[in-house]
Amino acid sequence: MAIGLIGKKLGMMKVYTDKGEAIAVTVVDVSGNSIIQVKQKSGKDGYSAIQVGYGDQKEFRVTKPLLGHFKKGGSAPKKVIKEFRVTGDDQLPAADAKLDAGLFSAGQWVDVIGTTKGKGFQGVVKRWNFSGQPATHGHMMHRRPGSIGCRLTPGLVWKNQKMPGHDGVERVTTQNLKVIQSRPEDGVLLISGAIPGNKGSIVVVRPAKKKPAPAAK
């Protein structure tokens, strides 16, 4: 576990490398992340984590108990609150530490967690990548699911049988994406490739779980 940032997907663009190759990148706004609370294993909470807020919220839109929580942590009211757990108290940052795009460096591997675009009610071909059946030559089963089970034995449709239904709007983690540029001055990260969700959707950027962390700064 490691500390990450909450951000907003702004859109995609391209970046040219020194060699003249174009890389498709997603621009993620990570400005205004602030630590609301530091939870310590040795303290009342019993585990080590930081609570991070993103996106300024008007004060009157926040309930009074929550406003008190923000004030106690010395943070402005925020729209989104998430927690990042760390292995031990010694890895916790100070309560007034600054969280910005500088947390990640260019070339670092990250995972991006987001909510995919909604697709509505979809058939099995789009939703589950079924192959479908031929369109012509007497077939009348073009995009239908086909058989969903046997007969008397087992006499039921198995659970988790893939069928048509609502697709999208699902939490997805895209692993092992490379940070191409980290720009704290603009409050953005430029991450190679595509990330889940629409423009304007909230995402979480964290160091990649399956790639080694960069050498200590």
Partner: peptide, 12 residues
Amino acid sequence: MSNIISKLEAEQ
């Protein structure tokens, strides 16, 4: 398009 993206594109 977001202002930041147009700014980043203009840089390049």
